[in-house]
Design a binder for these strands. Structure first.
Length: 191
DNA sequence: CGGGAGATGGGCT
DNA sequence: GCCCATCTCCCGA
């Protein structure tokens, strides 16, 4: 069952946790890929690491739009990362999808990342999963409620299956406990 | 295995 | 000019 607007309409931290165990799907021209979301990070409007914390610009515009839309950004001159916009229109917050466990379209994912031998290395990082799922920057701003990008409901996780830590790869606001992953899952980006 | 350097270009001070 | 929500390769253990 595809997630609709009511799922995204909660606090960003809550949505980041609720995404764990759901399924991210991309129906691309080359075929369908799907993976179970196992790791997320929350980015809040008053948080220095958040792209939207210094106000709206051309780049972060979609973060200020309604929740349930894709915010894709370009980083380090060669990679893209995928977020789901959260919080009401006018408030710039989002959830970064950091890792998925490949479920469907694995051959296509391997084809897109030919140098990767292990299934565990295929989607265990925000830029890796964007590459493996073939998510183009042209999908920046699209809704998860319709179109080729969607999130499907998964099994409900118990509270004690969710681990909370500090976020990866940031220097600003590095101490905030805003990273979430499924306990003992071997497809996360980093312990 | 784990750590460090290099790739590579948009965005913002 | 410097920073950056990253990844891969290569080296040493």
């Amino acid at each position: 069952m595809r997630l609709t607007s009511d799922f995204f309409d909660h606090s960003t931290i809550q949505v980041a946790k609720n995404f764990l165990g759901t399924f991210l799907v991309h129906d691309s021209p080359q075929g369908k890929t799907m993976g179970r979301i196992v790791e997320t990070e929350a980015y809040l409007s008053d948080d220095a690491a958040c792209h939207a914390s210094r106000g709206e610009t051309k780049r972060n515009k979609v973060m200020f739009g309604p929740p349930g839309h894709a915010y894709i950004y370009f980083i380090y001159g060669m990679y893209y990362c995928l977020n789901v916009v959260t919080a009401d229109k006018g408030i710039g917050e989002a959830v970064l999808i950091r890792a998925i466990e490949p479920v469907e379209g694995i051959e296509l994912m391997k084809k897109r990342r030919p140098k990767v031998s292990s299934l565990h290395q295929l989607c265990n990082g925000p830029a890796k999963l964007v590459l493996a799922m073939g998510i183009p920057y042209s999908l920046n701003g699209v809704s998860f409620s319709k179109g080729p990008l969607k999130i499907l409901l998964g099994d409900q996780l118990l509270k004690n299956q969710i681990v909370t830590t500090t976020r990866i790869g940031i220097s600003q606001a590095a101490h905030l406990p805003l990273r979430f992953y499924i306990k003992d899952n071997s497809f996360i980006s980093k312990r």
